[in-house]
Design a protein around this nucleic acid. Structure first.
Lengths: 124, 124
DNA sequence: CCGTATCCGTACGGATACTG
DNA sequence: CAGTATCCGTACGGATACGG
């Protein structure tokens, strides 16, 4: 565990932090969900469906493309057409989403109850 | 405008967004993980283990207590002692964490490959 | 020990305008 | 249509100091 005296104890963070950062950053979840549910989407479709500005949408899509979660296909036409679809790697997240969905259905009410019952500080 | 046939009124965002915000906000995942793995922890233990400043730690713990994910127990001693433990509701997230862990083990290498192979913009 | 109070820097998202 | 460029406001986290 800790090595010889003097050395700082190693702080081992939870192993899922990388995935969390990868998948649950802002907008990534809605984007993945939309592509998963509605299939291939064009840029403007995502823009309108999610209500996100083009700058941010581009940032997220580039990031997700780099990480291999989505596939971008450019069609050199006039006007240009770009398709975004979820990759196989992205689809492999399905069990995660399923677990999350199930948890929501079962336990989200409990959260609401807890919030209602909570009388301490931090009122939002 | 909205007269696109077929799709009536509702543009439904992904249903897991609330949970994501709840569980995967900054620091909440490491906190939950630590309490899940190492059991009950004192304030200063979490502070040191996670390397988080007391202000932020308090914010997160209050929020998670309000949401019913952790249980705070105050022992009026000198010096005072406060225990934080994961609640039953928090424990119910275990399947989610399990799915995430499994995905990490299986598919995180693919992400690294994708990043290495990616030659476009956005180099981080 | 367990927080709270205060200041501060920045990263991030939103809005707008413009280009190919 | 599919972005890029620019400006801007703020929410958030880190650092420090202090209090019960």
């Amino acid at each position: 565990m800790t090595t010889t005296a003097g050395a700082t104890t190693d702080v081992r963070p939870c192993p899922i932090s990388p995935v969390v950062e990868l998948v649950f950053s802002r907008w990534t979840t809605p984007i993945l969900w939309t592509l998963h549910e509605h299939g291939t989407q064009r840029f403007v479709e995502l823009e309108r469906t999610l209500g996100v500005t083009p700058k941010v949408l581009t940032q997220r899509l580039r990031q997700m493309e780099r990480d291999g979660l989505v596939v971008r296909t450019y069609h050199p036409e006039i006007p240009p057409r770009v398709q975004y679809e979820i990759s196989e790697l992205g689809e492999s997240l399905a069990p995660v989403f399923a677990a999350l969905t199930q948890w929501s259905e079962r336990h989200l009410p409990s959260v609401r109850e807890a919030r209602a019952a909570y009388s301490g500080p931090l009122p939002r």
